[in-house]
Structures are given as structure tokens and as C-alpha cells.
Design a protein around this nucleic acid. Sequence first.
DNA 1: CGATTAATTGTGATCGTTCACAAAGAGGAG
DNA 2: CTCCTCTTTGTGAACGATCACAATTAATCG
Lengths: 350, 350
Amino acid sequence: MTPTGETPAEPAPGSAAARGQRPSIRGVARLAGVSATTVSHTLNGRRPVAEDTRRRVLEAIEQLGYRPNALARGLRTSRSQTIGLAIPDITNPFYPALARGMQDVLGAAGYEQIISNTDGDRRRERAAIERMIARQVDGLAFAVFHTHAEDLAPAIEAGIPVVRLGGRLAQHGVDVVRSDDEGAAGEAARHLLEWGYRRIGFVSGPPAEGPAAERVAGYRAALAAAGTPPDPRLIVHTDFDRAGGARGAAALLDLPDPPDAVLCANDIMAIGALDTARARGLRVPQDLAVMGFDDIEAAAMVVPGLTTMANPAREIGRACARRLLDRLSGGAGPSAEVVIPARLVRRGSA
Amino acid sequence: MTPTGETPAEPAPGSAAARGQRPSIRGVARLAGVSATTVSHTLNGRRPVAEDTRRRVLEAIEQLGYRPNALARGLRTSRSQTIGLAIPDITNPFYPALARGMQDVLGAAGYEQIISNTDGDRRRERAAIERMIARQVDGLAFAVFHTHAEDLAPAIEAGIPVVRLGGRLAQHGVDVVRSDDEGAAGEAARHLLEWGYRRIGFVSGPPAEGPAAERVAGYRAALAAAGTPPDPRLIVHTDFDRAGGARGAAALLDLPDPPDAVLCANDIMAIGALDTARARGLRVPQDLAVMGFDDIEAAAMVVPGLTTMANPAREIGRACARRLLDRLSGGAGPSAEVVIPARLVRRGSA
DNA sequence: CGATTAATTGTGATCGTTCACAAAGAGGAG
DNA sequence: CTCCTCTTTGTGAACGATCACAATTAATCG
């Protein structure tokens, strides 16, 4: 294309680019013999440009290796094309899936994503929000358990659309996207009942924390709907980890009339429950069915494979991004709650 | 602090902030009765400010809820305080750990991180680099297998420090940070020899792909160093997944003189090898030892727990970030290669 | 042929910072 | 009292884009 036959991306020797200076829109304008305005409009098509001019401009851009400066553009338009995501820890596999879901949608719309890890520390959460506001993010997704509503106030006052991930809709001006934990627990319980299990226990974490409470509620509701009389001894509270799951399952099995199936508040705990079953020589799923929540990677790896309710993290991310984009384009109505259903993943343990 | 006793974060009614306009540095200057320059310098301390003035300025900032506009600052200084990270897929658990390691270091230095998923697609890799340049990232970390060196050229020409993750040092002006796959494989092999295993097989992926080749080399070297005669039949090539691991292990066990230990190129494959052992009624680790690489979450969950060489993703991220910061502050010398050692994680399978 | 319209492009201010200069005032020395 | 130094602050021009206006030209019409 260029006279010398070099690759188009290569800047002409002696050009601004070759000297390490990035070419600006004015440089392009000069080379193409037009004004900066025209270059701008050729690029973002806000007003018609004559075919002939457009060609000259594009050639100049190519020749100089020009790339519009997103910072300058953002300053002028007060749109950074950036979305902030504040999460406890990207290392927790739920969040990468969430982030990816958001990017699936945001990337197509030309947005980039800034991720901040807060480790669930309130001070760091507030600092993250401050930093994001300073960076003029166009939208903010906030995923935390321990957040206080007023911490989001600065963002709202700054006119930034905010979506909260998880929890109930509680705050004016903040949308919520969450998984249907209650429904998922119900589906899990129904699945066990369908397969003939009659006495179903639930191993939960510390009372009233996070989505676990919803899951307990869904479990209760499903049993009630099936006409099974509720038995409070079938719900035990332990820690949200593998050892906790093992202890919880053991406690249930020690009952005078032990359950033939246990639902655990998450997969890690369910794997703990499998440990207990193995230790006691119980065959899974014949003697005891075990189900978890989330469908972590390990759920497919253990033997037998863990039947579980997949946490639709990626879907949540997509919905969250869509919601933000809607708000940004103005048409989204009052704050709303979007609930994403979970999906049953059948493996060997039930 | 404020006369009316309201919380300091609350903007005064009628102020710019209350009207939805974010206050600018000039607004602060006006309220404090100084020039914008003085406000700027109180904030970033590039020149001394009288104690009295500083107080007035800080009060004005508090009162207006002023936050410096990072876009404007970046435009003026041509520093965005942003680092780009291009990876195949954040959903692969290696990368979140890497990203987190980078943030551990970058966050403290006031940098934010932009993550781009390329899915290993070359077009998307190039597009990601373009976008990052347009955003004026101050540094770029690039983690891909199939990347061609010339794809990084635009970033280098733009004067952006680039660190490549994995691979060998091959390109002028690009640092490399990688895990010591060869050394890790050697350590794994030595560990098995120490525990009395004598005939060690290796289940690798397709020949000459990624870090697996290094791992094979390290395994070979360790055996040679121990005086064990090399046996090409002990190295099999299959796919990088669970089924591949299972097939590879089966192939080795079908040898006339089967190995008493197998090393797999990653944990997923090792879990496949465990499948094979279970299917054949072999006890692990008595009849057959199994080791993997990476220490994925599932490695701790399977039974028996998988002994493995932890892939120091977070450490790699930290080193990568440190390297970038060094380059940004000017003092980093010629391109270099940083090698991070792996760590042996002992569990039940060896 | 002058006037009106449509198509195309340009001018200059502006977004919110920072930075190179320079100025103003206070205090001390000669 | 003048000159110099030191401390403290201000002025005005950038950075690179966009946008409200306005200007220029060619084409069309009565």
C-alpha cells in the first residue's frame, strides 16, 4: 500500500511516531490537509464526510499509525468507556466467571473493565469506590457481603449507575442482580425427592449469612410443598468450609433417624460431606445422596462426581453489564432486581 | 468539622456537587482563595505549601467533596496509572491468581489494572493491544501461547514497557517472567526417587507445546542426574485434559514393565491418571504414585489428595508488576528473564 | 442572474489538570 | 536604604480530543 512496500503499520521514517511521539489528531489533520474536526468526524461518524476526504484521512491515519487518545476523549466527553467492578477476591472462582460475563457484554460495546479486590474489608471497599469515581467510570458493579448501603452513596451522588451483586433490593437508585438461591435450593430438594430420597438434611453455614439463608428457605419451602413435615433437627449450622461440611454431615448422620440425603450450602462443604460418608463406609448415592451449590471446578473431579446447582456467575455478569448499559443509554426505568435462575448439574452423588 | 455538624462527606446544599456537577480544581481554588496551581501542589506535594494554606485547601476539598479527575491528570502527564493485562481467559484459574499478584504490587503504587480476554485468538490479541495503547496504559503484561513477537511491536514503539508471561526471552525490549517448569519437574522427579519409586513415567500433552516441553526436559534431566537410564517408552503424549491423562496412564501401565509412578503435565491430567488407577484397582500411592503440576483447587479435593508442584501464579504476578514498575521509574537495565521457582505440595498421592 | 438550499468543512473555546516561568513579599546583610 | 535570598504563590499555556457555531462552496430554482 505504501510506496516503499513496507507494512502499513510501520510508521514512516522521520514521522512523529518514529521519534517516539504519538501522533495527535492535529498531526493527522495536517497530513490529510483537513481540520482536526474533520478527522474527528471521520472517525466517529457524527456528521457526514465526503468520500474523498474520508479516504485521505484514513490514509493519513494509517501512515502515522494514529490512535485516538482515550484519555483526551474521555476528558472532553466525560465518558471514560470504563466500568468498575469491586469484588472481594478475584481468586475466588465465582468472580472471574462474573467478570468474564460482564466483559462478554461490555467488550462488544467498547467498554473496558477495572477490577478492584477489597478482601471484604470495608475501608478498602470505600477506597475502591473513591478511586473508581476519580477515574470517571461510567458504571459500577459492586459485589460484597458486608457492604453498608451508605458506602455506595458517593457513586450515586456522582451520577454513576450502580449495580449491586447479590442481596436484596434495598437501596434507592441501585439495581440488584442476583442468583435465585431460593429457587435453586427448592429445585435441589425436589430433585432429591423425585429420586426417592425421603429424609433430606441441610448443612448450612453460620446462621443468616449471605445467600445461605436463602438456600435454607428454598429447601424448607420445597419440603413443605411436598407435604414433608419440617424437622428442625435436619438443619445444622457449621462453617463454610470442607471441615465444616464434614462435621455437619456427621452430626446429621448421628441423629436417631438419620437423613438419606444431605444438601450442603456450597460445594466445598458437600465435598466435606463426601469425606464423612467415605469415612463411615457409606456408599454415595445408594446409602446417602449429597448435593452442593455453585458447581466449582472440583465438583466434577471428585469421585463420585458431585451433583450440584450451578451458580450462574457468567450469566449474572452478563445481566449486570446489560443493566449498566441500559442505564447509560438512559432507558432503564426505576431500580429493579434481576434474578438469574440456577441450573441443575447431575453427576454421581445423587 | 463543618459548621452545621453534618457529615463531612455530604456536599453543602447548593454546592456544585449537590447540583450533580463534579467540582473541579478551580472550584476548590476559588473556595480556598488560592490558585488552582496551589491546590494541585497541596495534593501531590511537588512543591512546598504553607501550612496555613494547605489547611484551607484541604478544608475546601472536604467541603466540596472534590476528587481529582484522573482522566485530565492522565492527559496532562501522559500517565494513566493503568496497567494492561492480556490473557486468554480469566476463567482459567491460573490467571486470576496472576492478576491478583499483580494487583498486590500495583495497588500499593496507585495503579489500576485493565484485563482483556483474548481466548487465544490472535486477532483479539492484537485488538487488545491496540485498545490498551489507545488507553495510554503505562505498562502491559501479555500472557499468551500463540503470540507472534511482532504483535507486540506497536506497544514497544509506543514506548510502553511490556512483560511477557511464559516462554523464553526472545524479543528485544520485552522482559519475560515465567515459572521454573524445568526445575519444578526435576524436583518432582527427585521427590519420587527419594520416596523409593524407581520407574517413573511422564504423561505429557501434544509434543512441544507450551510449558509442557520444559517439564519433560526437567524430568529427563533429573532422571539422568540420578543415574537412571532413559527409556523413551516412559514418555507418552496425549491431550491436556482429564481423559488424556487417563489414556496416558493406561498406556504406561500396559507396558511390559510398567512404571510405579507417573508424572503428569498438569493436575487435570493427573486426576485422569487417578481415574485409571481406580479403574484398575491400583492403590495410590502404594501401587502407583501420581503427581501433577499447578496445584489447582481440585487437587486438594480429590481422594487421595494430589501431590503436585504448585504453579506460583501469584508470585509471577508480583514479579511481573515489580518489573513493570521498575521500568516505569526508569531503572531496569536491559531486557531480562525472571524465573520463579515452583513449590512442592505434598498430599496423599505420592 | 441573484437568491435560496444543501453539502461539506473550519474556527476557537472547552473539558480538568500540570508545569515552566515569574512575581511578590518578608527578612537579613551590607 | 538597597540589594539579595528565600519562601510562597500566581499566570497562562499546554495535553488531545469534541462540539456549538459559522463559513464556504456548489447546485438548484424562479
